[in-house]
Simulated scan of single mutants.
Amino acid sequence: MYQEMYTHLFNAMTDALEALAAHNYGQAETLLRQAQLWAEERYLEEEPTP
């Protein structure tokens, strides 16, 4: 699970940095927020381990 989350978040950060470089701040914020929500949902979907 964590490897998938890391990869997804890393890619989202890369995309957000590209958006920032293009001065597209709204897109950068959207990308980061979407990635944050995705990761949180994935984490909460996992069953807790004893």
Rank of each mutant, 00 (worst) to 15 (best):
T7N: 02
E47M: 14
R33W: 03
Y25V: 05
A28W: 01
A19Q: 05
H23W: 01
M1T: 07
T7I: 01
D15Q: 09
W38Q: 02
A22V: 01
T14A: 08
A35N: 04
M13W: 14
L31V: 11
D15S: 07
A19L: 00
L9W: 05
R42A: 12
E18Q: 03
L9F: 08
A16F: 05
L37D: 14
N11Y: 09
T7R: 04
Q27D: 09
T49H: 10
D15Y: 01
E45Y: 09
Q34W: 07
R33P: 03
E46W: 15
A19Y: 01
E4N: 14
G26K: 15
N24A: 07
T30R: 10
T49S: 12
M5R: 14
E4H: 12
W38Y: 04
L9C: 07
M1S: 08
A28K: 01
Q36R: 14
E41R: 14
A39C: 09
M13C: 10
Y6G: 00
L37Y: 11
N24H: 08
E29F: 15
G26S: 09
L44N: 09
A35D: 02
A16W: 04
H23I: 04
N11R: 12
L37M: 12
H23Q: 12
L32N: 05
A12L: 01
E29D: 13
T30Q: 15
R33S: 13
N24I: 00
R42F: 06
M5L: 15
G26V: 10
L37C: 04
H23L: 08
Q3R: 11
T30A: 14
H8L: 02
Q34E: 10
Q36Y: 14
R42E: 04
R42Y: 05
H23R: 07
